[in-house]
């Protein structure tokens, strides 16, 4: 599920600080975005301090205490091996956030240069890259992620790499679009005239001004990666047991959906809420960064 962002015309570098304040002001005025920020903030905080909040060792197995419903001792009940679900969820939040952020980082690091070079230089290379990326985008990211995980093997790190690679074409296309718009701007032509090298222009002049759409897309992409990771878990290609990744907890828990539904309900809701948070913030950022809607 890829949410598309339209490249926006970017301001010149000098306006950056005031631009940032302006964006922030718009974001804070957007009630939905604030809710999203609060959700994400809450999850980040809880994940950072997971060891403080956790009531139990998330890996401590107690076969005599399996699948117990929520209680004062176990806030969210226990899982199929008698582990405390609340504590697992806390630590799992860290992992899911990590999956989201790191996979986005991978996607950006690979996708942005491809898009930038392709858009900046144009010509045959661009046409080919463009068509190729069209197809890659049409290919469902989850399928690409499945192939990458089977090549690399299962495990959280590989899930990050797989979801990251699957998001590469999205960034490449996005950045290419922005670059096309920006490279005609006066300060870029000026830089050209001043004799700056192509790479310098791309990295110093153009990319900093593509930041807005990249940030917006990344916010959405974090959400998508978390969902992809859950889907991989469902197919048995997710995190290595006993890692308490949310998608893994959810897909293992589905075996108990009829007998001890808390094992699926809470991780399901947690994923839903976190994805919702990132999408709300993404929406807010897009509006705030788009001069048309201000």
């Amino acid at each position: 599920m890829a949410t598309e962002v339209n490249p926006t015309t970017a301001p010149s570098p000098r306006e950056k600080t005031s631009e940032f304040r302006e964006v922030l002001r718009h974001l804070v005025r957007n009630r939905a975005a604030v809710v999203g920020l609060c959700i994400i903030g809450g999850f980040v905080l809880v994940s950072l301090f997971a060891p403080l909040f956790a009531t139990h060792d998330p890996l401590r197995i107690n076969l005599g205490n399996r699948l117990k419903p929520p209680s004062a001792e176990h806030f969210l009940g226990t899982d199929e091996l008698g582990r405390d679900l609340f504590s697992r969820m806390l630590y799992g939040g860290r992992i899911s956030l990590n999956i989201g952020v790191i996979s986005v980082f991978i996607g950006v690091v690979i996708g942005v240069p491809i898009g930038a070079v392709s858009g900046y230089f144009g010509g045959k290379l661009d046409m080919f890259t463009q068509r190729f990326i069209d197809i890659m985008i049409a290919f469902p990211g989850i399928l690409l992620a499945i192939v990458v995980v089977t090549v690399l093997g299962v495990g959280v790190e590989n899930v990050m790499i797989a979801t990251g690679i699957a998001s590469v074409p999205i960034y490449a296309r996005l950045v290419r679009g922005s670059v096309l718009a920006i490279k005609e701007q006066s300060y870029v032509t000026a830089a050209h005239a001043a004799g700056l090298g192509d790479m310098r222009i791309i990295f110093r002049q153009i990319l900093p001004n593509c930041l807005a759409p990249i940030i917006v897309q990344s916010t959405f992409q974090i959400a998508t990666s978390i969902l992809w990771a859950a889907g991989l878990g469902f197919l048995g290609l997710g995190a290595q047991a006993p890692t308490p990744e949310w998608g893994a907890i959810l897909s293992n828990g589905r075996a108990y959906i009829r007998t001890a539904h808390h094992v699926t309900t809470y991780p399901g809701l947690a994923i839903l809420l976190m994805v919702l948070g990132f999408n709300l913030v993404g929406d807010g950022l897009r509006d705030a960064l788009d001069p048309k809607t201000r």
């Binding site: 599920m1 969902l227 859950a230 889907g231 959810l250 897909s251 399901g268 994923i271 919702l276 999408n279």
Partner: peptide, 14 residues
């Protein structure tokens, strides 16, 4: 709509 895009597909299917 927001909830619709946020729910893991297989979870919703179940």
């Amino acid at each position: 709509a927001l909830v619709g895009v946020a729910a893991p597909v297989f979870w919703m299917a179940l």
